[in-house]
């Protein structure tokens, strides 16, 4: 039950952008140099993130990307849904296509699990990530 690299890399790239001084932007090349994510992959991830208004692009040779709205209004859940799609642990929860829905014994558990996942990712925003980043000691990490 994994989050894909799309979700993982998107969170890392967004945290990098959120750490920039307000109003600053970064090119995919500099994001790539600072996160280790290839700029081709970043370009790919930025398409749905831009569409969702999570990031904003600045055009031009000196252009780049920045958070699309104040970072405390950007939630982890929004980022993950933009690049991963639905966060349901099983595909049958919202589809309402399952003929066994009314008598499905597992449905209650999967629903509870989904609610817990959604509550968790919808309660953490980029401001929270920035704050916990700032409490970490720089010395211990590579790159």
């Amino acid at each position: 039950m994994r989050i894909s690299t799309r979700g993982k890399y998107s969170l890392e790239a967004l945290l990098y952008l959120a750490l920039l001084p307000e109003g600053d932007f970064a090119s995919t090349r500099s994001i790539s140099e600072n996160t280790g994510i290839s700029d081709g992959y970043l370009e790919q991830l930025f398409i749905p993130l831009k569409k969702a208004g999570i990031i904003r692009g600045i055009r031009g040779a000196q252009g780049g990307y920045l958070p699309g709205r104040p970072i405390k209004e950007i939630y982890v859940g929004q980022i993950l849904r933009a690049v991963e799609g639905s966060l349901e642990p099983v595909a049958c929860l919202s589809a309402e296509t399952c003929p066994a829905e009314s008598r499905c014994i597992t449905r209650h558990t999967w629903t509870a699990l989904y609610k817990e996942i959604a509550d968790c990712v919808d309660s953490i925003n980029l401001q929270d990530l920035v704050e916990s980043y700032n409490t970490l000691d720089q010395e211990e990490y590579v790159i």
Binding site: E12, L15, I124, Q138, Y141
Partner: peptide
């Protein structure tokens, strides 16, 4: 990296 560590502890460990 510090970025990766931050995302892991703030998001993935909690999840």
């Amino acid at each position: 990296s510090k970025l990766q560590h931050c995302v892991r502890t703030t998001v993935f460990d909690r999840l």
